[in-house]
Design a protein around this nucleic acid. Structure first.
Lengths: 202, 202, 202, 202
DNA sequence: AATGAATGAGCGTTCATTCAT
DNA sequence: TATGAATGAACGCTCATTCAT
């Protein structure tokens, strides 16, 4: 796999990764082919394979880049407001983002892929671990009485629950207009759980 | 597509649908082909195409059958115990089922497919509508003060939240051992939300 | 791999194997492709792969068929004349055959291939074992005083020596016109070795 | 093709030719590519093509170099011992060398290639002509009564016979352990042929 | 002297589909 | 009902070669 030492190569790699990302979203992994990526990027198949000698290298690089965007926004959230506000902002942000066309299409592909391709699972797990880690920090701030184990469990439960809405209130899904109501219910029930719930200890 | 009026044809169709279901689970849709289904069903490709002239017809029929199995179990839940018990049983049942290999593999495929294939969306939506309908009946029994709209919103929020755990505590997933804790937290927070939450009215 | 149950399929398989054999001889293995075989057989690539799902299956089947032709002629030799005459006939036959275009081109491909493809080695070894077995029977008849071990060594030495001439007196090779002289020298020296040589015992 | 007038270029060319030689032996000609040679030589494809603008130029140069190594050793043999000893040494040397991995792999590739590529035939024929020339000198010394024509025929017969053993007693071949016995039988029968055989005169 | 970038052809293979038997 | 036969398109990938840097 090429680094893209010249500026020409560097921008090519970017073009390719963008085209690949878009194709995955538009057509799904079962319609994702090297030829179609090359076409979308406006280059010849041979040239695509010059930069990414195998399909799995391309997919890996594309996921890396895509996932990084999600990770970057998480860090942002922690910089403003009280723990409760951070908590609400995070939930609101994730649920809102989930209604964007990109996210709605991207994550189900990721979940499906991770069931059948080992190294994609790794990428996905890393992302969610980071997500839970930040969510855990906020939760610990909200309720200092919780043990690390309990924080971990809460992070898992809350983050997983939120992800589930992708398929229902995502872009072009039947319940898109309920986003605000979902945010309201999520905020309430998860805040209550963090502050007054009886969280398993082990 | 043949109806299978003779008994041999009927059992053939069943064999085919079972093989197709299993293949989807084992290999994912992007490895799902007519040839492999024929092999798995122990018949020749030509014969498979006699029963299902096109791939999409086969996929539709397979989803119909698979989804029906899930629907059948929902009805069961309503027959025993108080509303609160039914609620807890439903949550427990769905979360537990979600850790079976079949469910863990099947649903992400369904979600991904529904993003790119129109008629699969229809099947999926029907199933979830039925699921929410039953869940709504239980919720209405639990808190008669809720309006139909509020019940609908709660059903959506709770069912969607539960689905999200597939990718995290499903079969062979990193958090499988947390199932019981997830059930505990889900039961608590969602029961609280139904009974004491401030549910949006419109 | 198909059996060719209908006569249509049977003759197709024959056409394919003939085309493959001819292509190997004409172009060598490094120019031997499924597409070229299909073209030579007058069918489409997809149809060729229907009969031979993989290249290695095709190559195996082709070698089987080709080698069988050589084996069949060996058996013939044993049916006429005294042991000495059989011996001379075998040597003369093999050396003469070796100047045919087919044999001249075919065997070097086989030798090269057997250095790099495991299962081709198996085919080749079987053929030569049969060849040596028949040659050994003749040698044992010529000189009953030889032990089985000695017969084995003589068969190996003589058969291997004869094969070596392929590259020098074969079709279109620089020394083709020396065939008769080579036969004369081979017959003499190998007959002497069998009858008066001091053959290693172990 | 560059001459390599500077010392760096010369060693580069040598490195390339060595890598190419090794690759041919390891993988066979049908797995021999410019990319793999470049990799093996530790340079980039573009640089390899600077030195050898086409694949056939590289192959030619590699064969030239490899063959020269074989030629050099032949000259050595003539410097020690009586004609009979020289004869025995040459046979022993060639048969023994033939069991080295390099020779076992290299020659069948050469024979196969020479059937399909004109200019490779030229290289090969030159080498064998030199081989026969030296062998002929020894034979003439052993039996001065032989005419030049007879010497030529004997050289051809003996050298070709010896080559044939490559495929049977070569490296990793089924009869490797018989080398000494083969040497013994070859020495006997060919010495007898030279000294007492009835060699064709034309 | 060396690497980067790009192309076009060809490879073995899988596939959905059609049609004859 | 069931299998056999055939097609054409697409796939991931390797390759020799050309040209710019």
């Amino acid at each position: 796999m090429k680094n893209g030492v010249y500026s020409k190569g560097k921008s090519r790699i970017n073009d390719i990764l963008d085209a690949a990302h878009q194709l995955l979203i538009d057509a799904g992994y079962h319609n994702f082919s090297m030829r179609k990526v090359a076409d979308a990027a406006g280059i010849k198949l041979g040239n695509l394979q010059y930069y990414f000698p195998s399909k799995s290298l391309l997919v890996s690089a594309m996921l890396d880049k895509t996932i990084q965007v999600y990770l970057d926004t998480f860090d942002e959230i922690r910089t403003h407001g009280s723990p409760e506000e951070q908590f609400q902002n995070l939930i609101k942000h994730v649920i809102t983002d989930l209604t964007s066309r990109e996210t709605t299409q991207f994550f189900p592909e990721l979940w499906s892929l991770s069931n059948h391709e080992e190294d994609i699972t790794v990428h996905m797990d890393q992302m969610y671990a980071k997500y839970r880690s930040i969510l855990g920090d906020i939760i610990a701030d909200m309720n200092p009485a919780l043990s690390p184990k309990q924080v971990e469990k809460l992070s898992l439960f809350i983050s997983a629950s939120v992800e589930g809405h992708t398929v229902f209130i995502g872009h072009n899904k039947p319940w898109t207009k309920e986003v605000d109501n979902i945010v309201a219910m999520a905020t309430q029930s998860f805040t209550w759980l963090v502050e007054h719930g009886d969280i398993p200890k082990r």
